[in-house]
Amino acid sequence: MRIREIGPRLAFQNHAVPTGVKVELVGRLLDAGVRAFELSSFVRPDLVPGLADAEEVFAAVREAPDVRLDCCVGNMRGLARAIEAGADSAAFLLSADEEFAHANIGRSTADSLAELERLAALAAGSGTVLGTYIIFAWGGPTGPARTGADLRPLARRLQDIGVDHWILADSAGYAAPPQIRELVGAASAFVPPENLTVQIHDDRGMGLAALLPLIEAEVGTVDTSLAGGGGHPALPGRRGGGLCTEDAVQLLELSGVDTGVDLSRLVDTANWLTTEVGVAGRGFVRHTGRVPDGPGAPLDFSWGTRGSH
Rank of each mutant, 00 (worst) to 15 (best):
V67H: 04
L154C: 05
L168M: 04
R35P: 06
N271V: 15
D223H: 02
M1E: 03
M76L: 10
C72S: 15
E117N: 09
D97E: 12
S95R: 02
F92Y: 10
S264W: 08
L254I: 13
F136H: 08
D300E: 15
G207E: 03
P49Q: 11
F12L: 07
T197S: 11
T19E: 09
P292I: 03
G127K: 13
R2V: 13
G50I: 03
T259G: 10
L168C: 08
S40H: 13
G256Y: 02
E253W: 10
A123Y: 02
R239P: 04
D202L: 05
A169G: 02
A64G: 12
G20E: 07
A16T: 08
A114M: 15
G127L: 01
R28F: 03
Q250T: 10
A123V: 12
E194W: 10
V219N: 10
S255L: 10
L263F: 06
L273T: 06
A169D: 00
G33R: 07
G294Q: 04
T128C: 12
L214V: 12
A87P: 01
A80K: 14
H287V: 12
L113P: 08
P295T: 07
D262K: 11
R282F: 09
T197A: 14
V129D: 15
A121W: 01
R282E: 13
T147V: 04
M1A: 09
D293T: 10
N104T: 09
H232N: 12
F42M: 05
G294E: 11
E276W: 03
D258C: 08
L79S: 00
D300G: 08
D300C: 07
V191D: 09
H15M: 05
T274E: 11
G304S: 15
E115T: 13
G139Q: 02
R265Q: 14
G278H: 02
L208T: 11
E182Q: 11
F190A: 09
D202M: 04
G20Y: 07
V21K: 05
A121I: 06
S255I: 11
P178T: 05
G78I: 07
D88A: 14
V184K: 10
T128R: 06
L94E: 02
L158I: 07
V48E: 00
L69E: 14
F284Q: 14
V57N: 00
G237C: 11
L10V: 04
G296Y: 14
I134N: 00
